[in-house]
Design a protein around this nucleic acid. Sequence first.
DNA 1: TTGATATCGACAACCGTGTTGTCTATTCTA
DNA 2: TAGAATAGACAACACGGTTGTCGATATCAA
Lengths: 148, 148
Amino acid sequence: MLAGFRTLADRATIELGRRGYPDVRPVHDFALHAIRSGAQNASELGRATSVTKQAAARTIATLEQRGYVSRQVDPADRRKMRLMITERGHSLMSEGEAVFEELRNQLELDVGAEALEQAEAVLQTLVGENAVRLDSPGWSAGGVDGDE
Amino acid sequence: MLAGFRTLADRATIELGRRGYPDVRPVHDFALHAIRSGAQNASELGRATSVTKQAAARTIATLEQRGYVSRQVDPADRRKMRLMITERGHSLMSEGEAVFEELRNQLELDVGAEALEQAEAVLQTLVGENAVRLDSPGWSAGGVDGDE
DNA sequence: TTGATATCGACAACCGTGTTGTCTATTCTA
DNA sequence: TAGAATAGACAACACGGTTGTCGATATCAA
């Protein structure tokens, strides 16, 4: 009874694969959103997605390989590689949003609009609560020894 | 808005760590439940959790290492290693359930009993729908090329 | 009884996504 | 200008999944 979102994300992934974006995973879409919302380089992306800059750099690398973002040295600060979402990247994002919309609509048909909204509110509360403490990286994989 | 369950599972993991069960992850609890519900060996566990038997065997290995299950050759079929949950394993499961209960109660305080139930029903629908097609392993990591 | 076939579990190699830790290049600051 | 901070690259590793192979055991059919 715990796997609700996994389910949703997995289905969206599958559907996207079916529509011409294979080998795209939730992480990638997540990263693209963060980039579009202002993350301009690997370090920023890492901070935005609560992940080390190394992990972010890797995600960017695959995103670049697959043609969803491009990088270019920041003329103002030559340490930085500025990120730009390509045309294909934007297409992916729209398609992803469409897929999600469809899944949501489907679910709404199944359970009713009211129930769905309620459920979304609950989940919102859930993630909202600990969004505060997402600042520290390393919560999920490595150090679970939560001594504060 | 997508990370609801991750959140829940992560918090439970952290709390369990705090209570004397560090290095326990959702997978482990998941596996223990499957074992308690009848999975008697690695292959069965794999089938029960929609994972290859190799992955299941690994999970079992770490579970055994940490002292949560023990294994013993099945006298009736000497290919099989029968799984038994140890005392410590049962303690972990109770503790896990307690933690979950607490988290659920906390959430219920935040959003109200009615909303929570509604949300659970929605999620139930969500996973219920595709529980039917969980039979094929390899949905999440490898082959997302969903051509049926 | 024997031989083909299926299953169990182990092992090895690999992938994806995360982590540390170290390093160089660059920029900021006192 | 010296020192500190930051960006990003690289390497090594962990974890949890995958495939593929293999020997040992069971099972089923001639």
